[in-house]
Design a protein around this nucleic acid. Structure first.
Lengths: 224, 224
DNA sequence: CGTACTTTTGAATCGCATCAAATCTGGTGG
DNA sequence: CCACCAGATTTGATGCGATTCAAAAGTACG
């Protein structure tokens, strides 16, 4: 397994689709050599299963591209999506569990990194710097998710867009790294609603749209 | 300052309003004595400010009761709520920042614990057990928040309720620890919509409501 | 026993999802 | 280079469902 090479390659070329790792001050770069050596790369096809509820936790997964869904089934066959993940660590919470509490299924062809859990924990114990990065990563993830929940609680397309620009953008200016359709999904809107609301807000002079760059013009008065 | 006493008192009597701390295997109990000794208790009135954007990070706060909002202002006076917090740690992400990036204002009368940041970091460095608890707490928080985001992305009151019961309940059975009105807010619904949808689902035989306990009956067929 | 809050039901409105269809875009291969 | 295709973007029309406003009944608490 060309694991160590692969990981370095990913870090050095930055040819990953996942932004979070890079954004978070290049977390992958802080992975200690010992852990790197045993980290594996894996591709799974759409529909394939990554792990199953009840099976024991052996790996911590980091999603590089594609989509994985964490799904829970109930007795009568109901199916609940607990999480759709398009990047980042999957089921970090399973770190302190013996077995997985849900299934993980690939929704598309997916590339991931597999960290053997015991080695990962060992690295956290033994490497203060790595540990600090890991805690910072988790803490930042918590902040981002809380902000996203807050945004999804807004009952209005315009408010969600403005909230996004205010919270994710730099001073109200944001350059999309994704398609607007994908953005709509992140905002919990249909893509049509997003297009229309963007147009409306632009028509009201509330924001300016130049290709993938969107700027908030004046947010003082809330008149959606 | 009767800090150490207070903290023990809180832990021993469990008379806090915040469930998460207790739920998360009694995190407070794992706080090392050194940190306990310098932990302060604070009450702030509704409208009072806890910290201000740009001010340096001196404390890590843990909300015991009340509500604190993290708010960001833009140049033109726009006001965006990044987070409404009704319990748990506030702005953990500020752990790795020199200054706060938003304001924190109490929305109600609020009780909190104030951990001096340097002591907290010191405790994390020096106490492996405490550190493990902290990482587990963060990881579990991430999982909960991701699940909540997933739920808030559902465009349908019935689906959100079922999702909540499936993901937060034990085998589809859940006893509410809060009012239904508060639950509605957590679900991102108006309380009227929650009451009505509960009634509808009960009428369809999809769930059973006995006071504060709600059970999912059959979730195999999605007919909301 | 009064006050504040939750729970409940009703009615009206409006925004968003949904379905449909046309145009535009980037990327692929002939 | 062009034809082609899949996907994104855009606009239109329609209907449902949730919000909102309103008001009454129930409940907790001092």
């Amino acid at each position: 397994m060309p694991t160590c090479y692969d990981l370095n390659h990913i870090v050095n070329t930055k040819r990953m689709d996942w932004h979070t790792l890079i954004e978070s001050q290049g977390f992958l770069e802080f992975i200690p050599g010992d852990l790197r050596k045993v980290t594996e790369r894996r591709n799974i096809a759409a529909g394939e299963m990554l792990f199953r509820a009840g099976s024991s936790v052996c790996y911590l997964y980091c999603l590089l591209s594609g989509e994985v869904r964490l799904v829970r089934h109930d007795a009568s066959g109901g199916r609940i999506v607990l999480q759709r993940s398009r990047g980042g660590f999957i089921a970090e919470a399973s770190i302190d569990s013996k077995t997985y509490h849900c299934d993980a299924v690939a929704a598309e062809n997916t590339r991931l990194l597999c960290f053997p859990l015991s080695e990962f924990l060992h690295a956290l114990e033994g490497n203060a710097h790595f540990r600090t990065m890991w805690m910072a990563l988790l803490a930042r993830e918590v902040r981002k998710l809380r902000t996203r929940c807050e945004r999804l609680s807004l009952h209005n397309a315009g408010e969600r867009i403005v909230h996004y620009l205010e919270s994710e953008g730099a001073d109200g200016v944001l350059t999309l790294s994704q398609s607007r359709k994908a953005w709509a999904e992140e905002l919990g809107l249909s893509h049509e609603a997003l297009y229309r609301t963007l147009k409306k807000l632009a028509g009201q002079g509330r924001l300016k749209i130049e290709g993938k760059t969107i700027s908030l013009l004046r947010s003082s008065d809330y008149q959606y």
